[in-house]
Write a protein that binds this DNA or RNA. Structure first.
Lengths: 191, 191
DNA sequence: GCCGAAACGGAGAAGCTCTCCGGTTCGTGT
DNA sequence: ACACGAACCGGAGAGCTTCTCCGTTTCGGC
């Protein structure tokens, strides 16, 4: 059901729930009690579960705006001249965003879309990244064994160990880019 | 209290709990219900909590043997000629081990040792890695910005996104070693 | 304003963690 | 062998969370 469907009170409660969820998740992390979100939104817990049957549904909805911004950003960067810089700029913004959501984005990236969830935020990020990756790969600027899924998985791993510290996430991403092994003949420029 | 102290029935119950925990965690992951572990071990839940006050205590104990093996392995590798190969061989074994524990090692690596837990498995791994890292760094075989904690953090991130798939973890570690960016002039040899 | 459908919310079931306390078992000293 | 204190055990239950049922309220078209 689209978010703008249904009765007026339904839409109002949905918005209240999303606002409360953003606040509570941002404060207490992605594992915060759902009941507190319902209380904070001023609705019953049954209403929360009716709108968002699982915790994941709520996490997906909370991230919609941030993911949308990243998708727009990917479109902008796809028009830039330097394919390699565009790719890493976007990945840096993704890892910084994920590092500021207290694990919310991490949960979404962690589990695969699954058969009954084809339209999740994770696949939107995948679709946004794919053109940037394809262009950089065609330019020889990406390790030939590194696929789109590998990049997303690695960024996910980084964001999960750097919750609440975007700078640390950005630093580890730079290490991933240049490589930790002995082939660091030239340090990669950040962003 | 050392694991070999106390009365005979206490030691027996401790062993039963550890065996049950290894089985249940291995089957259902690090978030499995503790009550089921107690039931599977044939003891009351109070006994489980008396032996292992927190879930983390139990996870630490379950990993003791595996971490011990890795520490021994680090000593062996420290005697090898090639410092770079020794470092990456050990990291590969670590990421493979962590990828087979259904998130158990990941939980331990995730949270810092903390003030009241100076002897956790995470710090044992840190101490095992440090000499390998120092030697490889001295030989110029490691990115100058990559510290011991960075390596452990990155391995943790990789293991957390490759649960139950050691091959995938090993592959991502190889990518981390050689770098995803454009400086992949020579592919890194694995293990 | 009426009324059917849509949506709500509290109460409660079920599951998990952790604690309290009465009862049991161990092992030591005689 | 046996008695006894200390160590240990386990079930019952409190507190918390997720999620569902169902009687009640609210919306909005007519």
């Amino acid at each position: 059901m689209p978010p703008t469907a249904g009765r007026a009170d339904r839409r109002r409660n949905r918005e209240r729930l999303l606002a409360a969820a953003a606040e509570v998740f941002g404060r207490d992390g992605a594992a915060a009690p759902l009941e507190e979100i319902a209380r904070s939104a001023g609705v019953g817990s049954a209403t929360l579960h009716r709108h968002f049957p699982s915790r994941r549904d709520l996490l997906e909805a909370v991230c919609t705006d941030g993911v949308e911004r990243l998708c727009v950003r990917a479109d902008e960067l796809a028009a830039e001249d330097d394919a390699e810089a565009a790719l890493w700029t976007w990945l840096d913004e993704l890892v910084r965003y994920a590092s500021t959501t207290r694990g919310v984005v991490g949960v979404l990236l962690a589990e695969p879309p699954g058969p009954q969830r084809p339209l999740c935020q994770s696949s939107r990020l995948h679709d946004a990244l794919e053109p940037l990756w394809a262009r950089a790969t065609a330019a020889g600027a990406v390790h030939p064994e590194a696929g789109v899924d590998d990049l997303l998985t690695l960024v996910n791993g980084i964001s999960r160990v750097t919750d609440d510290d975007p700078e640390a996430g950005s630093r580890l991403l730079a290490l991933l880019r240049s490589g930790v092994g002995s082939n660091h003949h030239r340090s990669a420029t950040r962003g």
